[in-house]
């Protein structure tokens, strides 16, 4: 830790989308702000900054979390996957289905929706409509593409199961 200045800085080493990263941040810096401001990963968005909207959803060691409610320091030694990491090799089937279903309006909430939906599908390949709604109910969409997003998740699930039609 270096002394002086406005804040004591904390050195944090973490894996982000498969790459090792080291950043020096003050203790109060959230993972969300560190991703956006220190690492240039602006795909995770800031809206409420208090865990209510889901725009900042990332995977921390494979689990969906609100990056605005995680201190960057806590992620030291851990693995973070952001929406950029999900789509490193082009659009995923899930992202394509978001487009096909007309789920993308202004788009601001969409990265968070995509991460939450991906997390759901990894744990539950055949979610019911009710399970999809429940799994995503921490992700607000003011354009209210909710029903379109549900369709996108259903279509992705079907596609992953190899269903036709």
């Amino acid at each position: 830790m270096s002394a002086g200045g406005l804040h004591d800085l904390q050195t944090v080493a973490l894996t982000v989308n498969g790459s090792e990263r080291t950043v020096a941040v003050p203790a109060h810096r959230t993972l969300l702000d560190a991703l956006r401001d220190e690492m240039g990963l602006t795909g995770s968005k800031t809206c409420c900054a208090e865990g209510e909207c889901g725009a900042c959803t990332v995977l921390l060691d494979g689990r969906a979390v609100n990056a605005c409610l995680v201190l960057c320091a806590e992620a030291d030694g851990h693995e973070v996957t952001t929406v950029e990491g999900l789509s490193e090799r082009g659009l995923t089937d899930l992202q394509e289905e978001f487009l096909n279903a007309g789920a993308v309006q202004c788009g601001f909430c969409i990265p968070g929706q995509v991460v939450s939906a991906e997390y759901l599908l990894r744990g539950n390949p055949s979610p019911s409509e009710e399970q999809i709604r429940e799994a995503l109910s921490g992700n607000l969409c003011r354009c209210a593409g909710y029903q379109r997003i549900v369709r996108a998740v259903q279509a992705t699930a079907a596609r992953r199961r190899g269903d036709r039609g």
């Binding site: 689990r63 969906a64 979390v65 995680v70 429940e134 109910s137 921490g138």
Partner: peptide, 8 residues
């Protein structure tokens, strides 16, 4: 909270 909250 939500799924993401319950994960933490």
């Amino acid at each position: 909270g939500s799924v993401a909250i319950r994960n933490r």
